[in-house]
Computed example of a mutant assay.
Amino acid sequence: MGSYVTTLIPLGIPFGSVGWIYQDASAHARHGTPVYFSAGSIELSKPATWALGCLCLWLVFLPLYLTCRRQAS
């Protein structure tokens, strides 16, 4: 039982934050203030793009999303 908990908690935090980012980015988009980031030809503004980026590179995209979210509000 203990080994399941020690495995699920480290996996639950990133996956939970991906779900939260998708929900939050969707709410911002519905209200007309999308969370936006652009660097060269890379543009992040859709909720699915934020969630996918966070799913692939959580350590990079979570702080980036939080920073861009603050600027969108």
Results as ranks from 00 to 15, higher is better:
2 G>Y: 12
2 G>T: 09
3 S>Y: 06
3 S>W: 14
3 S>N: 12
6 T>V: 03
6 T>L: 14
6 T>E: 06
6 T>F: 14
7 T>V: 13
10 P>H: 06
11 L>C: 03
12 G>N: 07
12 G>A: 11
12 G>P: 08
13 I>P: 07
16 G>T: 01
17 S>G: 05
17 S>L: 08
19 G>K: 07
19 G>R: 00
19 G>Y: 03
20 W>A: 12
20 W>C: 02
20 W>F: 14
21 I>V: 06
21 I>F: 08
21 I>D: 05
22 Y>M: 09
22 Y>A: 11
22 Y>C: 05
23 Q>G: 15
23 Q>F: 09
23 Q>Y: 09
23 Q>D: 01
23 Q>L: 00
23 Q>N: 10
24 D>R: 12
24 D>K: 12
24 D>N: 13
26 S>K: 15
26 S>P: 01
26 S>V: 01
27 A>V: 04
28 H>T: 12
28 H>I: 10
28 H>Q: 14
28 H>E: 11
29 A>C: 03
29 A>Q: 13
30 R>P: 12
30 R>A: 12
32 G>R: 14
32 G>V: 00
32 G>N: 08
32 G>Y: 05
33 T>K: 14
33 T>F: 11
33 T>P: 09
34 P>K: 09
34 P>I: 00
34 P>D: 07
35 V>K: 01
35 V>H: 05
35 V>G: 02
35 V>A: 04
36 Y>T: 12
36 Y>R: 14
37 F>A: 11
37 F>R: 15
38 S>V: 12
39 A>M: 06
42 I>A: 14
42 I>V: 07
42 I>F: 14
42 I>R: 13
43 E>R: 15
43 E>K: 15
43 E>H: 07
45 S>W: 10
45 S>N: 15
45 S>T: 09
45 S>P: 01
46 K>C: 02
47 P>K: 01
48 A>F: 11
48 A>W: 13
48 A>R: 15
48 A>H: 09
49 T>K: 13
50 W>P: 03
50 W>C: 04
51 A>Y: 05
51 A>D: 08
51 A>W: 06
54 C>L: 03
54 C>E: 00
54 C>K: 03
54 C>A: 15
55 L>V: 02
56 C>P: 02
57 L>K: 11
58 W>K: 08
58 W>V: 10
58 W>Q: 01
59 L>A: 04
59 L>V: 15
59 L>H: 08
61 F>T: 03
61 F>I: 04
62 L>R: 08
63 P>G: 04
63 P>T: 11
63 P>K: 11
64 L>E: 14
64 L>V: 08
65 Y>N: 03
65 Y>K: 02
67 T>Q: 04
68 C>V: 10
68 C>T: 00
70 R>I: 10
70 R>A: 00
70 R>W: 03
71 Q>C: 13
